[in-house]
Simulated scan of single mutants.
Amino acid sequence: MALPASVRLVEVGPRDGLQNEPEPISTEIKLELIERLADAGHTHIEAASFVSPKWVPQMADHSQVMRALMHEGKGRPDINYSALTPNLKGLEEALASGVQEVAVFGAASESFSQKNINCSIAESLERFAPVVERARAEGVRVRGYVSCVLGCPYEGEISPAMVAQVTRALDDMGCYEVSLGDTIGTGTPLKAKRMLEAVAREVPMERLAAHFHDTYGQALANLMAVLEEGVAVVDSSVAGLGGCPYAKGAAGNVATEDVVYLLKGLGIQCSVDLERIAAVGDWMTRTINRPNRSKAGVALSSR
């Protein structure tokens, strides 16, 4: 299949990228990051996670962040600011803050599901059904995530058929798009293609997105593999920030700067400006005293 003419990037840095940071990051810095990402050309920014502060202390200011974006002039009407809502309580808080899109997340691994959200895959899907139903009743779009699509820290190999089954369940539930997550970054290009082939037999390619972590340095190669299959939506995190609290040693999501550099080299259109996003990554990593994991970002910033 030919490469897509354009790719939509979903910037997950403010949520996925920051959720594991051990030191508190102020609401002001988070909002400035989101504003800079918008200035760089992002049209979809995952801004917060409405989870219990007990489990994810870094996201304790989720309501303040979303209210500032939706009601206090910090956001822009042409940008989609989304939030993670794992349960009805989180959804109600998100709705109260004016959110227009939410996300629910399941896993293709039974062990990971138990460790991550303390229930089986089937139970997790049962929990999400009323969340999706309530959100859609309020006119709020719902995006789905599937974790561990190319491997699990507890089970190892994950069957493409299981990934397809969970993806189909989220699609049937009413998610407009499902993002396929290599949570621990162990995937390789052939595995990624085979997984996607299985999923695309159940859910149309135009409703699928790629969410690849770079633990073993394979994220860009894996992205290339799925772009060739027709995936046209990619999740990325500025400066490669992030990781997973339930997957020890997992690196952050593929760096936005590196994805933009790749897309540019392939002649694929995307709304994000390379020089500007590199500057955002440089600023943010300096601000929170973290290494910049973007190869392209480091190269551009050191020129």
Rank of each mutant, 00 (worst) to 15 (best):
residue 161 A to L: 11
residue 205 M to E: 12
residue 243 G to C: 10
residue 254 V to A: 01
residue 261 Y to D: 15
residue 248 K to W: 01
residue 187 G to P: 06
residue 192 A to F: 06
residue 166 V to Y: 08
residue 202 E to W: 13
residue 184 I to N: 10
residue 222 N to T: 04
residue 215 T to I: 06
residue 228 E to D: 10
residue 252 G to S: 02
residue 179 S to A: 14
residue 213 H to P: 05
residue 233 V to A: 09
residue 218 Q to C: 11
residue 171 D to R: 13
residue 209 A to G: 12
residue 250 A to M: 07
residue 221 A to F: 11
residue 230 G to H: 02
residue 160 P to L: 08
residue 219 A to G: 09
residue 182 D to A: 04
residue 169 A to S: 14
residue 174 G to S: 11
residue 253 N to F: 01
residue 257 E to P: 10
residue 238 V to Y: 04
residue 258 D to K: 04
residue 197 E to R: 15
residue 168 R to F: 12
residue 201 R to K: 15
residue 247 A to E: 01
residue 182 D to E: 01
residue 232 A to H: 12
residue 207 R to P: 02
residue 215 T to S: 14
residue 239 A to T: 05
residue 210 A to R: 07
residue 172 D to F: 11
residue 186 T to M: 11
residue 242 G to S: 07
residue 235 D to T: 04
residue 195 M to A: 07
residue 203 V to E: 03
residue 191 K to R: 14
residue 228 E to N: 08
residue 169 A to Q: 10
residue 208 L to W: 09
residue 224 M to K: 05
residue 226 V to H: 01
residue 238 V to E: 13
residue 237 S to V: 03
residue 221 A to N: 08
residue 167 T to I: 06
residue 235 D to A: 00
residue 251 A to W: 03
residue 207 R to N: 14
residue 220 L to P: 06
residue 210 A to K: 02
residue 256 T to Y: 11
residue 230 G to T: 07
residue 243 G to Y: 05
residue 178 V to E: 05
residue 191 K to F: 11
residue 251 A to E: 14
residue 191 K to Q: 15
residue 223 L to H: 00
residue 193 K to Q: 15
residue 220 L to S: 02
residue 195 M to L: 06
residue 187 G to E: 08
residue 163 V to A: 14
residue 186 T to S: 10
residue 213 H to F: 02
residue 219 A to T: 10
residue 240 G to M: 11
residue 180 L to D: 10
residue 241 L to M: 15
residue 182 D to Q: 03
residue 225 A to I: 03
residue 192 A to I: 08
residue 227 L to W: 03
residue 206 E to N: 15
residue 214 D to Q: 14
residue 259 V to N: 05
residue 240 G to A: 07
residue 212 F to G: 02
residue 224 M to Y: 15
residue 197 E to C: 00
residue 235 D to L: 00
residue 200 A to R: 12
residue 234 V to A: 09
residue 178 V to A: 02
residue 247 A to Y: 00
residue 215 T to P: 09
residue 162 M to A: 07
residue 220 L to C: 05
residue 240 G to Y: 03
residue 163 V to C: 11
residue 167 T to Q: 01
residue 215 T to M: 05
residue 217 G to Y: 00
residue 202 E to Y: 13
residue 252 G to A: 07
residue 263 L to W: 04
residue 198 A to C: 09
residue 230 G to M: 13
residue 235 D to H: 12
residue 190 L to R: 13
residue 247 A to N: 02
residue 181 G to S: 15
residue 256 T to H: 06
residue 162 M to G: 00
residue 200 A to N: 10
residue 191 K to L: 13
residue 254 V to I: 14
residue 231 V to M: 05
residue 261 Y to L: 14
residue 222 N to I: 07
residue 169 A to E: 10
residue 200 A to T: 12
residue 230 G to C: 08
residue 256 T to K: 05
residue 180 L to K: 09
residue 252 G to F: 01
residue 225 A to D: 09
residue 247 A to V: 00
residue 179 S to Q: 02
residue 196 L to W: 01
residue 172 D to R: 15
residue 256 T to C: 06
residue 215 T to C: 00
residue 197 E to K: 12
residue 226 V to T: 06
residue 175 C to P: 10
residue 189 P to F: 13
residue 197 E to Q: 14
residue 244 C to P: 00
residue 255 A to I: 01
residue 184 I to K: 00
residue 231 V to L: 08
residue 172 D to L: 15
residue 208 L to V: 09
residue 205 M to H: 07
residue 256 T to I: 06
residue 218 Q to I: 04
residue 170 L to T: 04
residue 201 R to P: 00
residue 203 V to D: 05
residue 160 P to K: 13
residue 172 D to Y: 07
residue 173 M to R: 13
residue 170 L to N: 06
